[in-house]
Amino acid sequence: MALNLPAEDPMPEGAATYFDKCEEKLGIVPNVLVAHAFDAERLDTFAKFYNSLMLAPSGLTKAEREMIAVTVSAINRCHYCLTAHGAALRQLTGDPALAETITQNWRAADLSERQRAMLAFVEKLSLRPAAMDEADRQALRDAGFSDRDIFDIASVAGFYAMSNRLASATEMAPNPEYHAMARD
């Protein structure tokens, strides 16, 4: 990582416990979390927001949320997030080819009409947010999304727009382990 942000020393118990859980569940502590370790409160806020968007109950599947993360990250050319969330998408779908295609060009992927509508919305929101209008929301409703789902789609897209900028600004490197995950 290009910025030198030393972790709090000693690491607060809550942060250390969270890192231990990551190591246990994932086999790694994602570098994005390590980057936040200089401030336990910021780390906790980031982790809680991520967990509420990506893991909490929603009308969106976990795979759909990862599709959003990958699509936004592809638009922003975020090496860290494309690598990390490409791996997550491969794991969730069990389909490395699908995940790689979404990473490169979601329009070429074998997606449902629902997912196509979702990613078209995400693409426009990422590239031309001021141009969003009722027709964009209605297209999602027509594809079967509720207004709460639309809010979740926008929230996930917004979170990754922010995360992409943070990763790019700090030259955050993805954990090497992500490259080999879920490729079998």
Rank of each mutant, 00 (worst) to 15 (best):
A143V: 14
L111M: 00
Q138C: 07
D44Y: 06
Y18H: 04
E171S: 11
M162G: 04
G14Y: 07
R183A: 02
A182K: 02
S155E: 02
A173V: 05
R165A: 08
G158P: 05
E134L: 00
L92H: 13
N76I: 02
A35L: 10
A84W: 08
A87H: 05
A97E: 13
H85I: 04
N105M: 11
E8D: 12
G144I: 04
K124D: 11
R165G: 10
F49T: 05
A130L: 06
D110Q: 13
M118S: 07
L43P: 01
T17Y: 05
F49R: 02
I68K: 00
E171T: 15
Y80F: 06
T45W: 07
A63Q: 13
E24I: 01
A117P: 01
A109Y: 09
A56I: 15
A173K: 15
T170F: 14
A154N: 07
N175V: 12
R183M: 08
V156Q: 02
Y178K: 03
G14Q: 06
M1E: 13
F46H: 07
E13R: 06
N105V: 12
R128K: 09
S155F: 03
F121A: 01
R107D: 08
A117M: 01
F145Y: 10
P6G: 02
M67Y: 13
A88S: 10
A143K: 00
T103V: 06
D20E: 10
M132G: 09
A135V: 10
C81Y: 01
A7S: 14
L33S: 04
G144Q: 10
A173Y: 13
A109S: 06
N105R: 14
S126A: 11
G27H: 14
V122D: 05
V156M: 04
P12N: 07
P30A: 03
M11D: 01
G14K: 04
E66L: 05
A108C: 11
E24L: 05
